[in-house]
Structure formats: C-alpha cells, structure tokens
Amino acid sequence: MLLTKKSDQELIQEYLHGNEDGIKGLLERYKSKIYTSIYLKIKDEFLAEDIFQETFIKVIHTLKEGRYNEEGKFLPWVMRIAHNMIIDHFRKEKRAPQMVAAEGFDIFEVLDVADENVETTLIKEQRDVDLRKLIQKLPDDQKEVLIMRHFCDMSFKEIADITEVSINTALGRMRYALSNLRKMLAGNHLVLQTG
C-alpha cells in the first residue's frame, strides 16, 4: 500500500516498527500546514524552521517513548506541540512575538506562473500582502483562530482543543476576527478580489 493511502495511525505504527518511511510520510503529509501555522504566528523564516524542526524532534521522541495516545488526531496533536514550542521560545526570550508582515513579492514566483499574466499575478501578490498586514493587526487570540482555520484548514473543535478554550469561544473569536477584518478593509478602501 502506498504511504499516501495509509492513515496517520498506520504510518505511526510503521515508524514504531522500524520503518522510517512512516515518519517521512507523516512529515510530507503535514509539513506545509504545520510550518505555515508556525510562520504566520512569528513571521521569521529561520525561527519558524527551527521551531518546526524542534516540533518534529519532540514528536519523534514522544512516539519512540510510547507516549502518543491521540489516536486519529495526529495533526491537532502536532499543532498543539508547535503552539507550545512557540510559547516556550518567547518565554525564554522574555519578549512578545514580533508579528511583522512580509513585504513585497518574489519575482521568480511571477515568472513561474505560465497561465496568468504578470498584472494578475502582481494584483494577487499585493492583495495577499495587504491581507497579511491586516491580519497582523488583529488581537492575538483572533489572529490565531483565523490562521488555524483558514491557513491550516483546522476544525473549530481542533482549534478549541489546541488553544484550550470552548468551541463557542473559538467561534466567537473567528466572528470578531472576520468583523474586524471587514472594518479594516473598508477603512483602508481595500477590496479583496479572487482574480
């Protein structure tokens, strides 16, 4: 059976029985969501990579020690570990996270897009930059829920579990985040078009 067709639990079992492809399969399956979640919270590429690696080192140690018992909930479990790693990092640094939006765009991304013209691509890039700036202005609790929901495709139950609040609180934070974003968009005369 191909690794992509196996469940998280099957890949974990393969890894625990000595097949390194099990952990590689899990890493490939979730690296984008986990890294994106970390990066969007701290806005530092190198620090995000470090925390991502530390997160997976902790995942591997926990699996090898037989302490993983979140059957069927691998991604929320790893996201909670990543969340705690970020908090631990900033506690050690004794400072608040610097949430600074990335500016500009990568010209090579523009050149790689064959189906879109340069103008459309530049408009999308600017829209994304503008949206990231506005998201960074949200209160941390609202920003966190928005990032987990829209960038990491997590359910409100998973978000509530990771942030240790009720589902209603997570839903409320999302409502406030979207309401605040709408107000900021109107205030900045920005329109987010899909293309």
Rank of each mutant, 00 (worst) to 15 (best):
E45D: 03
M85G: 07
D153W: 09
F56K: 10
D128G: 12
V78T: 03
I167G: 00
M1F: 11
K24T: 07
K92T: 13
R149F: 07
A114Q: 13
Y68R: 10
E65I: 00
F46N: 13
M79L: 15
K137D: 10
I123R: 15
R91L: 14
W77A: 02
F105Y: 12
S155C: 04
D140L: 13
L2C: 12
M148F: 07
F156E: 00
D50F: 01
E10M: 13
D128Y: 13
M184I: 03
K137F: 13
K157P: 01
R91W: 08
Q136A: 15
E119T: 09
E116A: 10
Q193Y: 10
Y15A: 01
V110T: 05
R95A: 05
N19Y: 14
L16A: 06
Y39M: 12
D141H: 11
A48Q: 01
D50W: 02
K137I: 01
L63W: 00
E70I: 02
E49N: 11
T163R: 07
D140M: 12
I57G: 04
L63V: 06
N168Y: 08
T120I: 07
N188R: 14
M99K: 11
L178K: 09
L111N: 06
V118W: 13
Y15C: 04
Q142V: 06
A101C: 12
D128N: 13
N117V: 14
L131W: 08
K73Q: 06
N188F: 04
H83V: 00
E103F: 13
F156M: 10
T194I: 12
G18Y: 03
N69A: 12
K33T: 02
P76Y: 04
A102L: 14
E116V: 12
A96P: 08
E45K: 13
H89N: 13
E103R: 15
T169S: 10
L134N: 09
Q13P: 00
L27V: 01
T121A: 15
V113M: 14
D141M: 11
Y15N: 02
L11H: 03
A170N: 00
L131G: 06
D8M: 02
